[in-house]
Structures are given as C-alpha cells and as structure tokens.
Design a protein around this nucleic acid. Structure first.
Length: 383
DNA sequence: GACTTCTTTCCTGATT
DNA sequence: AAATCAGGAAAGAAGT
C-alpha cells in the first residue's frame, strides 16, 4: 500500500491539526538579538535546515530540545515532503514526540523508528542542534546561567534514555559506540554526565575536546538517574534510565572505593571549559543558592528545570533535579555532579538560613531570610 | 601559610 | 525498590 508523500504529508498535517489545535507557539530563544556567526557549511544538504532567511516552520527557530510535539511533527513533515518519502511507512506513534525526547534518541533509534528517513532526520536534528548551540552568546556575562542552560540543554546528546515507549527500549540500548567511547576515555570526561570516577577513584583530564563528540554520548549519569521529571510531571516518570542502570551498576562494581572528600583538582575540567585567567581576588562566583535562584527568576530560561511552588514565599521545586545538578556541575567544571551531592550542599544552607526546610515534600525547598534577590520586589528592581 | 568559607564526596540510615 | 532526605565526616578549592 503506497501512499504518495504529499498525501501522507496531508495526513500528518491533519493529525497535527487535530492533535494540537491550539498549541501555543514554542518559546523562542532569547537570543534573537545575538548575531549568529554563520557556520562554515560544506554540505548543501544542510541548507534547508539552517537557512535563517527562509521560514520553514517555527521549529526552525527553536532549539530542537525545546520543540513541542507539533514542532516535531512539522519537522518530520518537512522532511517527508522534501525527500518525497512515503510517509505511510512512518509509524505515527514516533511522530508524537517532543523535542527533548527526540534529542534523547540514538542514531540507531532513529533508524529503527523512522526507517529510511531516520538517517536524514538524525542528521537534520544534529545540524539544527549545532546551529542553536552556536547561537548562544558565550561572551555575555549577564547571561551566565542562561548560557549554561542553553549549552547544557542544547547539548543533550543522542542518548536513549528519554524514551517513554517501553517497546522501544529493546531497540535503543546503549550503543556500542557510546560504550566504546566510555571505555576508551575511562570515563575521564564527558559533558556533565560522567559520574563514574576513574579507576584510581579520581577524575583526570579530559580526553574529549570536541563538544560535539561529547554531546553525542556523554550525557550519562551512572550514579543517579536523571529525574527529568518528578511526581508532578508524570509524563516524565518513565523508564528513562532503566537501560543504563544495569550497565552502570556493572561498571561500578568493578571500581575501587573512592576515598572520602573532594578529589584533587588535577585537570578536573575538560576542554569544554577553557581556563580563564582569574585575578587574584576574583569573586568566587555564583554560589549554589544563587545559581538556583537565577534559574528560578528567569522562568523563560528555566526550560522546566525548576518551578516556583509559591512565588511569594520563595518555595520552589526541582523538576529535573539531575539536569540542574548537571548544569551546576558544568558551571563548577565538575562533570560528576549529581543531585545527591547538590542536595547535600542545599541542606547545609538550612543552618545558615539561606534555605528553609519544607518538610514532607520531595525536591521542594524554600528560600530563607539570608537569601536575597529572589523576591518579586528584588527582581523587579533588578537586584 | 593559616584560617575560613563553601562546597564536594562518601556514607549510613530513615522516609516517601 | 528506588528515589530522596538527613546529616556526620573528611577533604579540596579558593578567598582572606
């Protein structure tokens, strides 16, 4: 049964319209004013995705990670049209993914899910993500946290843990490439995801210098699952890390115990974190609570990492606890940060009254009297 | 260099 | 069962 691509494109459109009749437009990046350095493109095939001058759809303007399901559908439809692909071959179920889920898929998963269109979609997604990564103005100190957010979220690699469809789990096991990468680097680096220390119990310098290669497989969190979601986000309560766990546990069991305390900083960072000259009395930089605050007071930049439970009282909740931890780790040039560790630091704030306990509520904290800059008045005054 | 502050890491046990 | 919380202990990093 063959259906023309245009016909199925129409089907896609119809379904699209029926399913998402009133879906609001996605958040546009707040980087519209940033001049984007045109990347050197070699392949003409890249042009359709990357041409800024033409408008293919809202998805084109948005980091794929933030795509809505409608964006994803539009994007697939675009490629169906352009490649004259027989859309009847597509499993519609796989067209109803949001951007975050899509970005979590491995290359193998793309091939499995989208068949012959998989390669094209995968490459398109990769290019689009790269494009949006490059849009981030890294030099803007005002947006340090946002820069991290943007980098971080935009760099989520093609890792199959975002799948919620259990039926897919069999097909998207940790790829051999990723395993090999991990093996060869001795877990020594990896953007914000490498939680496993080296065999000596400490991290060492990075062997990965290419942020792209990093983004392709290093977002792994062996020691703790990504709570990319919470009890308040049932759609995220899925099997995300179930694949990695057995693999990870196996790796852990082979390691020596790590001594207590913080490991010495021996090339702790990796090449993603170019050393900057610090003046002798450079400020220590943002503290954890300030970092958390900065995420919270920029809701449009929050990207669902955290939310206010009670804005006036300063009660907030981690929605994607591990993602926030990764981000914090990235800021601190510590790729092994986890929510568990971050939360320990958070708990120390109770004593200093920077935070107050919120009993009985998981992932919920409250700013204390010694925390500043979070109140509406403060924010309004630009404090 | 000593001291202090702020984490970071590990751990055990409790709770959800 | 797993995730999270709680908090002690030890140690590193960086500012003073």
């Amino acid at each position: 049964m063959a259906t023309s691509s245009s016909e199925l494109s129409r089907i896609l459109s119809n379904v699209n319209g029926a399913v998402y009749p009133a879906e609001p437009p996605p958040l546009l990046p707040l980087l519209n004013t940033v001049t984007f350095p045109t990347p050197a493109l070699n392949k003409t095939a890249q042009l359709t995705d990357l041409s800024f001058g033409t408008t293919l759809g809202p998805w084109q303007q948005v980091n794929p990670l933030f795509w809505t399901k409608r964006n994803v559908l539009d994007w697939i439809e675009h490629h169906v049209d352009e490649s004259k692909y027989d859309a009847s071959l597509l499993n519609m179920e796989y067209c109803y993914l949001d951007g975050a889920t899509l970005c979590g898929l491995s290359y193998e998963a793309f091939l499995t899910m989208y068949g012959a269109l998989g390669e094209r979609l995968y490459q398109s997604l990769d290019r689009l993500r790269l494009k949006h990564d490059m849009q981030c103005d890294l030099s803007d100190p005002f947006n340090e946290t946002y820069t991290l957010l943007n980098d971080f979220l935009g760099n989520l690699p093609h890792f199959p843990t975002f799948l919620s469809d259990e039926s897919l789990l069999d097909t998207v096991v940790v790829s051999e490439d990723i395993k090999r990468e991990r093996d060869s680097s001795h877990y020594s680096s990896g953007f914000a995801g490498d939680m496993t220390p080296m065999s000596d119990g400490y991290e060492s310098g990075s062997s990965l210098s290419d942020s792209h290669s990093c983004s392709m497989g290093s977002f792994m969190n062996p020691s703790s699952p990504d709570s990319t979601g919470s009890e308040s986000d049932p759609e995220y309560m899925d099997k995300r890390f179930s694949i990695t766990k057995s693999f990870i546990k196996q790796e852990h069991s082979e390691q020596k115990k790590r001594p207590r305390g913080r490991p010495p900083k021996v090339n702790r960072g990796n090449d993603h974190y170019p050393e900057t000259k610090k003046s002798k009395h450079a400020p220590r930089g943002t503290h954890l609570w300030e970092f958390i605050r900065d995420i919270l007071i920029n809701p449009e930049r929050n990207q669902g990492l955290m939310k206010w439970e009670d804005r006036r009282d300063g009660v907030f909740k981690f929605l994607k606890s591990e993602a926030v931890a990764q981000l914090w780790g990235q800021k601190k040039k510590n790729s092994s940060m986890t929510y568990e560790k971050l939360s320990r630091a958070m708990r120390y704030y109770y004593k200093r009254e920077i935070l107050e306990r919120v009993d009985g509520r998981r992932l919920v904290y409250k700013f204390g009297k010694n925390a500043s800059g979070w109140k509406l008045e403060d924010v309004g005054l630009g404090i």
